[in-house]
Design a protein around this nucleic acid. Structure first.
Lengths: 361, 361
DNA sequence: CTGAAAGCGCTTACAG
DNA sequence: CTGAAAGCGCTTACAG
């Protein structure tokens, strides 16, 4: 390692025949430097190939222009899009984004928060709102802005940019119930440490309760968010003695897996069983049958998260963003249950019988 | 903004009754501090809630422990996995990774490189090898390690961690030719500014040339890497007066799109036309028909890239990594062309006729 | 094993 | 508009 002569701001000042302070100003607020000097300085910078030292700048100015983003995963086509939208938007304001993956593990997440705090990030992007309060304490102690995405919870509403997962799940349930379904299964993410998954389940549960229905405990399966897990869960659900007529998936990869497994098992979707997704990713409309699901505008969420963070960074007073609207997208993976009962009443009674038999076990 | 009293290393030193230097050592090389003092210091750190200032540390030590990664995209399920693998591996060595997206645009990439250089990243992860030499000059001027992924080119072989795209494409072609295909179309990425796409096309071209075959210019379609673009391109290709019997896709999303479009057009794959992918992502085995493709071990590539960078960071001498092996995965999207000719000769003659007719036009 | 001191390369009031 | 000077919060030879 030969000693590299890094050229510094002082070198530029010397070469341009001005003071270091002026060079600094020339870089940061060009307008405040006389045009003639500015040109001399720019020339010197060019000639010497000067590259400002971000660490020194950060130390002196107390700004790193770096945003830390902690995502549950980058490998499931769910977070990549929004993250890219976020980085594009915030990047155009001059910020760099550093990413870390928590793998849906709150302990890993805490470590990453800590690291970012040490790195002096100017802001933080997190997914979900539920985590050890101590983490929020640390963040707030450093006084750095943060935004919580994928939820519109009310615990820290002011920081939430996302949609109402529970309400979205309810849309799905209401639609299915109107179709005549009375017997439901659900393939969910892990509820305990994932407030998005929890909210979706809660939405399902509450909407069903309004109709005197419920997901039997053994028909609620919690699985990692990937198609293979969805396959297995679907297989289990339909192999039960009294299978559901509709299966709600808490995430779209689960639904893809369910559809693939159905094909392998020769189960007709939606003839035998209805299946719904959640998110409306690109595959939803292409897969067969095309998936009934709820659309979550994730790109918009990413951009809005960036703008919300930017506003805080500018020192604006925090105003709670309004939840991003979700929309029910009805396609071909859902239909009335068999036997087809045009009368809602008879269908209801039929389902009631099944449901009570089930809940009695 | 009230003035936050950030607690510094000096505060800790005072509280623990030692010198700042000792606190610093205690944090960075605990073994070099007497146990008794170490405990006092740790207590003080805990009590004061001290968080080291990364910028100051970086300035003084000339190390940021940050790696810059510039990816063409994060939104196409292609780069997320490898990136996550990379970050996990390099993160466990104490590095943070910052990401930026170039959107397959070399100008954007150059800006991001520049930004990362200013940020004093300790290392750089790039995709592909072909870019303005001036960029390499800047990187090397700062003397920071870098790794080029997704290729195993020989221009800067020592820095390349990836697979041989051309060879992988050749595997596919040889298989298709052995099946009896003589008339090929290709849906490719944009070749000019993407050396991975270029290498794949080159592999196709060279392999075909060995058999006296070629892709007619109008049957080589360059498209963005998404399923919809693949759909359109497929439609165009099969609507030509003399459509190919086999379509090679330079990326898997293209192939998915082709398969979906084929279904909509009522074209039988592989009965009417054979289709191949490239990468073997999870969908390849689930889609129908399951896709014949070539597997590129991307997770392994991510990890190896991290290790290769880490080795440089440790100051080890650079040794050219060996290319990562790709494997042909034969599934159901490929078959001999119609009319089914069990005799290779007759098939060949038939195809020859078509080919020369084509190339004469 | 520990401390005093210099220095990393900028920015930013403060004066002019 | 510009400069001299202090300071951001650490690390690291150097001495002991």
């Amino acid at each position: 390692m030969k000693r590299r002569e890094t050229t510094t701001l002082d070198d530029v000042a010397l070469a341009a025949g001005v003071s270091p302070a002026t060079v600094s100003r020339c870089i940061n607020q060009p307008a405040s430097v006389r045009a003639e000097k500015r040109e001399r300085i720019m020339n010197a910078i060019e000639r010497l190939g000067y590259v400002p030292n971000g660490s020194a700048r950060a130390l002196a100015s107390r700004k790193t222009r770096m945003i830390g983003a902690i995502m549950p995963s980058l490998d499931n086509m769910l977070f990549g899009g929004p993250l890219e939208a976020f980085q594009k938007e915030i990047g155009s304001a001059g910020y760099t984004v550093a990413v870390a993956c928590s793998e849906y593990d709150l302990d890993q997440e805490r470590i990453h928060v800590r690291n970012f705090l040490e790195s002096q990030v100017d802001g933080l992007l997190l997914v979900g709102a539920r985590r050890d309060p101590d983490i929020y304490r640390q963040i707030e102690r450093q006084g750095i802005p943060y935004v919580l995405t994928w939820i519109s919870s009310d615990t820290r509403k002011d920081h939430c940019v996302g949609f109402d997962n529970a309400a979205a799940a309810e849309q799905l349930v209401e639609y299915l119930v109107a179709l005549g379904h009375r017997h439901f299964g659900m393939i969910s993410g892990f509820i305990e440490h994932n407030d998005r998954a929890e909210a979706r389940y809660r939405g399902v549960r509450d909407a069903l309760a309004r109709h005197g229905l419920s997901v039997p405990p053994d028909q609620l399966l919690q699985r990692p968010f990937d198609p293979d897990a969805g396959r297995d869960a679907f297989h289990l659900l339909v192999s039960a003695p009294n299978p559901p007529t509709a299966i709600l998936c808490g995430s779209e990869p689960h639904a893809y897996g369910a559809l693939f497994e159905a094909k392998d098992m020769n189960i007709d979707i939606p003839g035998d069983i209805s299946v719904t997704g959640f998110d409306d990713m690109w595959l939803a409309s292409q897969i067969s049958p095309p998936l009934t699901t709820v659309r979550t505008p994730r790109g918009r969420m990413g951009r809005q998260a960036a703008r919300h963070l930017l506003a805080q960074l500018r020192g604006e007073r925090l105003v709670a963003p309004r939840p991003i609207e979700t929309t029910l997208v009805v396609r071909k993976s859902t239909a009335p249950p068999r036997p087809i009962s045009l009368s809602a009443d008879s269908g209801f009674l039929h389902a009631q019988a099944r449901t009570s038999a089930k809940s009695g076990s």
